[in-house]
Amino acid sequence: MLRTLASVLLLLTGVITLTAADSDDFVELFNGENLQGWTQRNGTATYRVEGDEIVGKTAEGSPNSFLCTDKQYGDFEMTFDVKLDPGLNSGVQIRSQTAGDDPMGRVNGPQVEISYDKMAGYVYGEAAGGWMTADADREPTDLFKQGQWNSYRVVANGDRIQTWINGTQVSDLSHPERFASHPKGFIGLQVHGIKQGTGPFEVRWRNLKLRELP
């Protein structure tokens, strides 16, 4: 009954309110021990496991790097915590692909922004047309906290992508064009390329959880 009610609420509002029963639907994307189930695509940044965290570290001269789930996802709700070194830009790819479906091809698709430039939480089309959130809708925020863990929530349902940072909604985006080209794909943890002579920088993720939506 609770799950039926949650489905009705999703259809009416596009937002799911979690209950104790609903929380059981989430699966851990990271097993807490190793990177089994993940594959690095693009770039030479390094990824390692440190306790209950996945840590990405920049490599000078590398293009953007992505640690990607082997499994693909379409409609889902995802939560994660992230902490970012000052000076680094990052993001989490959703419903993403590689060019020509080649494992070495360029990663492309929607990206939920992780950054200190007050644009955190908005949606960018990585190698897929640039900003998906319209210029007029990207209001600067101070929700992303430097040197602290930040909690993200992402709901992707049809052509609608909603994001929250630390409990506050940032974006409510409908993008039929990108949904048509990227209805499903992998989740990818980005380590952005850096300028020569800078870094190294690190980004850390933990509590990566996802549940697929009916």
Results as ranks from 00 to 15, higher is better:
L143I: 09
P103K: 06
D135I: 02
Q146S: 13
V107N: 02
K118Y: 12
K145F: 01
D117W: 13
P103C: 06
Q148G: 03
T141C: 00
V154I: 05
R153Y: 02
A156R: 03
D142F: 03
N150P: 15
S115Y: 08
D117H: 14
G109N: 05
G125D: 10
D137W: 13
Y152F: 03
K118N: 12
G129K: 11
G121P: 01
F144I: 02
A134R: 15
N150K: 06
P110F: 08
Y124S: 08
Q148N: 09
G147N: 10
Y122F: 08
G109P: 01
V107R: 00
E139M: 09
Y116V: 04
W149C: 04
E126I: 07
N108T: 15
V112C: 05
E113F: 07
N108L: 15
E113G: 04
R138C: 05
Q146E: 14
M104F: 10
E126W: 08
V107L: 02
E113H: 04
A128Q: 08
N108F: 04
S151E: 10
R153D: 02
D135P: 11
R138K: 12
K145N: 07
P140G: 01
A120G: 11
A134M: 14
S151M: 09
I114Q: 04
G105V: 05
D135Q: 15
A120H: 10
R138N: 05
S115T: 11
K145G: 05
Q148S: 12
Y124I: 12
M104T: 13
A136V: 08
D117C: 13
D142Y: 03
M119P: 09
G130M: 04
R153W: 02
E126R: 07
Y152N: 01
A134Y: 12
V112P: 02
P110H: 11
T133L: 10
G109C: 08
G130N: 06
A120N: 09
S115F: 07
D137T: 06
P140E: 00
Y124V: 13
Y152Q: 00
G125E: 10
Y122W: 06
R138P: 08
D142W: 01
E139Q: 09
F144E: 00
I114G: 05
S115H: 12
D142S: 06
N108K: 14
W149F: 11
R153G: 02
S151T: 14
S151V: 11
T133R: 13
A136H: 14
A127S: 14
A156P: 07
A127V: 09
V155A: 04
N157A: 09
D117S: 14
G130A: 03
M132N: 11
V123C: 05
D117N: 15
F144Y: 08
N157H: 06
Y122K: 04
Y116N: 13
V107K: 03
T141V: 02
Q111N: 09
V154N: 10
G121F: 02
V154G: 07
N157T: 07
V154Q: 08
T141I: 01
A156N: 05
G121R: 01
Q146D: 10
F144H: 00
A134H: 15
V154K: 08
F144D: 00
V107G: 04
E126A: 14
D137C: 14
P103S: 07
V123T: 13
Q146G: 09
Y116L: 15
V154Y: 07
T133D: 13
